[in-house]
C-alpha cells in the first residue's frame, strides 16, 4: 500500500524552509600560522559573516519585520548566539563527536582542546546528542530557530504583546507540524521546546568565553561580532 499522503506543511514552516540561509564556509586564512589564534580568528570571522546572514534571515520570519526596529534589535541582540549554536548543532547531526562550525571547518575533541574550546565543545555536543535522540527534522529545526529568536527574554522589549503574538504564531506552527507529522508522539513539540534551556545555557557559556577572548585582545574580531558581543554583557 502506498503511504498515506502527507498533510501539506503549514505556511509558516514552508516559508521558514525557503528562508533558510545558504551553506557558509570558514575559509581559514592560509597566511596565518597554525595554532589557537588562527582557529579562534577563523571562528570569529565566521561568526561575523553568519551574523549578517542571520539578520537577513530574521527579516524573512513571517511577522518579524512588522515589529518595531527597536524590538527587532533587542531580540537579535539577545538570541544571536543561540541561533549560531543551533545552526552548528544541526549541521553536526550527521557526524560522530565532531562539530561542524562550517562545511569546511569541522572540529573534533582534540582540535577543540588545542583551541581552548573543550568546554564549549562538550556543551554543544550535549545538545547535538539531545537532537540526535529526537531525530530532529529540518522543518522542526527551522521553526525552533525562529522560536528561539522570539523567546529570547530580552528585558528591553517595547511591545511585549506584539512579540508574544509572533511567538504564539511560531509555537502554533510547530504544534500544527507535529500534529500532522508525528501523531505517534503527542509530546514531541514539548520535547523540542524543552531543549531550549540547554541551548540558552550553552549560548551564555559561549558568549562569556568569546567575551574573555575579546578582553585578552589577541584575536582580531570584526565590528558586528564585537557589537553583538558587547550587547550581551
Amino acid at each position: 500500500l502506498p503511504p498515506p499522503p502527507k498533510k501539506p506543511l503549514t505556511k509558516i514552516v514552508s516559508h521558514l524552509l525557503v528562508a533558510e540561509p545558504e551553506k557558509i564556509y570558514a575559509m581559514p586564512d592560509p597566511s596565518l600560522p597554525e595554532g589557537d589564534i588562527k582557529a579562534l580568528t577563523t571562528l570569529c570571522d565566521l561568526a561575523d559573516r553568519e551574523l549578517v546572514v542571520i539578520i537577513g534571515w530574521a527579516k524573512h520570519i513571517p511577522g518579524f519585520s512588522s515589529l518595531s526596529l527597536g524590538d527587532q534589535m533587542s531580540l537579535l541582540q539577545s538570541a544571536w548566539m543561540e541561533i549560531l549554536i543551533l545552526s552548528v548543532v544541526f549541521r553536526s547531526l550527521p557526524y560522530e563527536d565532531e562539530l561542524v562550525y562550517a562545511e569546511d571547518y569541522v572540529m573534533d575533541e582534540g582540535h577543540s582542546r588545542l583551541t581552548g574550546l573543550l568546554d564549549l565543545y562538550g556543551s554543544i555536543l550535549h545538545l547535538v546528542r539531545r537532537y540526535k535522540k529526537l531525530k530532529v527534522e529540518k522543518e522542526e529545526f527551522v521553526t525552533l530557530k525562529a522560536i528561539a529568536l522570539t523567546n529570547s527574554d530580552s528585558m528591553h522589549i517595547e511591545d511585549v504583546e506584539a512579540v508574544q503574538k509572533l511567538q504564539d504564531s511560531l509555537h502554533e506552527a510547530l504544534q500544527e507540524y507535529e500534529g500532522g507529522e508525528h501523531q505517534e508522539d503527542p509530546q514531541r513539540a514539548g520535547k523540542l521546546l524543552m531543549t531550549l534551556p540547554l541551548l540558552r545555557q550553552t549560548a551564555a557559556k559561549a558568549v562569556q568565553h568569546f567575551y574573555s577572548i575579546k578582553v585578552q585582545g589577541k584575536v582580531p574580531m570584526h565590528k558586528l561580532f564585537l557589537e553583538m558581543l558587547e550587547a550581551k554583557v
Binding site: 549578517v52 539578520i55 513571517p62 565590528k223
Partner: peptide, 20 residues
C-alpha cells in the same frame, strides 16, 4: 542605539521580506 550602529543599519537595509 548609537552603540549598535551595524545591526541597526543591516536591519534597515538588507533585503526586504517580499524578495522571497
Amino acid at each position: 542605539k548609537e552603540k549598535h550602529k551595524i545591526l541597526h543599519r543591516l536591519l534597515q537595509n538588507s533585503t526586504s521580506p517580499v524578495d522571497l
